[in-house]
């Protein structure tokens, strides 16, 4: 791997100052995406700012209102095994469990995953379905935005130079959430998702008040469809709509046409599974 310098800030303020120092500077968290790009010669950073040594930057907490906050340096494995996430956002735990392999999950961070903007990823779709927000910090302060607005396209995010992701938060859920995540790979079990489908049914009392379908890994950004006061009969139509609205990126795993077809099939299945659990 080509040489670079590694700066090691202890605080976010310090980190942002270091990041604000020109083109060739980049943050590195788990390094599982970035180091590959450097090894392959696709990136030539002069300086990397190591966020792994930021103090207390990996906590996962839930506030009184019920919002779950995951600091950016939490590893995918921490998210997957966090009691808070398992109890309150099991679909996120399930999706994170399906990321890569155990060794990568111990290194990779949720912040790095979202900041990387790789569309062939599991967590973004689920988090978009959960209406998550990202918190961004820079030398000019801190701002928050919807993850759906943060993810602009393949390897494209709303991050400004000198800015970093410091946390992702999932707002409180009204009522009860029943959810299902389907990761579909076309080849080996170890592949990136060809499609990552999240289905959510929100219940107030016993009444389903909302259904959501998020499609990740198919298009440049996750697609989210919501339906209020859903009925079982309307679910296939939702999957149909997703398959019509999505703009798939064709690749070796399949043509755009095949991926559209997958979205229809898997969308229907995920919604049906969530519905069955929500309204047995």
């Amino acid at each position: 791997m080509r040489n670079f310098d590694l700066l090691e800030p202890k605080t976010v303020t310090e980190a942002c100052r270091m990041l604000d120092d020109g083109e060739d500077v980049r943050p590195v968290s788990g390094g599982t995406a970035l180091l590959i790009l450097v090894k392959q010669g696709l990136l030539r950073p002069r300086t990397l700012v190591n966020l792994k040594k930021l103090e207390g930057a990996n906590a996962i907490t839930r506030d009184e209102a019920g919002a779950v906050r995951i600091e950016a340096m939490a590893t995918i494995h921490q998210v997957e095994t966090s009691p808070v996430v398992r109890e309150h956002l099991p679909v996120l735990a399930a999706a994170c469990h399906q990321v890569a392999n155990i060794r990568i999950r111990h290194l990779a961070t949720i912040g790095g995953n979202l900041a990387h903007g790789d569309h062939q990823s599991d967590p973004p779709g689920v988090l978009v379905a959960l209406d998550a927000e990202v918190e961004l910090s820079g030398t000019r302060g801190t701002r928050a935005m919807k993850l759906a607005d943060f993810l602009l396209g393949t390897y494209e995010t709303a991050l400004e130079p000198g800015e970093m992701v410091t946390a992702v938060t999932v707002p409180p859920v009204r009522g009860r959430l029943v959810s299902d995540y389907l990761k579909f790979t076309t080849g080996s079990s170890e592949e990136r998702p060809c499609a990552g489908i999240t289905a959510l049914v929100r219940l107030e009392g016993d009444r389903p008040v909302e259904a959501r379908l998020a499609v990740g890994a198919v298009a440049a950004r996750p697609l989210l469809l919501c339906e209020t006061d859903p009925t079982e009969g309307a679910l296939p139509r939702m999957a149909e709509r997703a398959s019509e609205e999505i703009d798939p990126i064709p690749d070796l795993r399949g043509s755009a046409e095949y991926k559209r077809h997958l979205v229809r099939v898997l969308g229907r299945r995920a919604l049906a599974a969530a519905w069955k659990e929500a309204c047995p």
Binding site: I36, Q40, T186, G187, S188, S189, E190, E191, L252
Partner: peptide
């Protein structure tokens, strides 16, 4: 039989890394 295939486009490798070209795993 199921997924291994070296793909070239005009002689250029399209999936010339183990990230893109995967070998069967224990789950496979």
């Amino acid at each position: 039989a199921f997924f291994e295939e070296m793909v070239f486009e005009q002689g250029q490798p399209v999936n010339g890394t183990l990230l893109e070209y995967m070998l069967p795993s224990m789950e496979d």
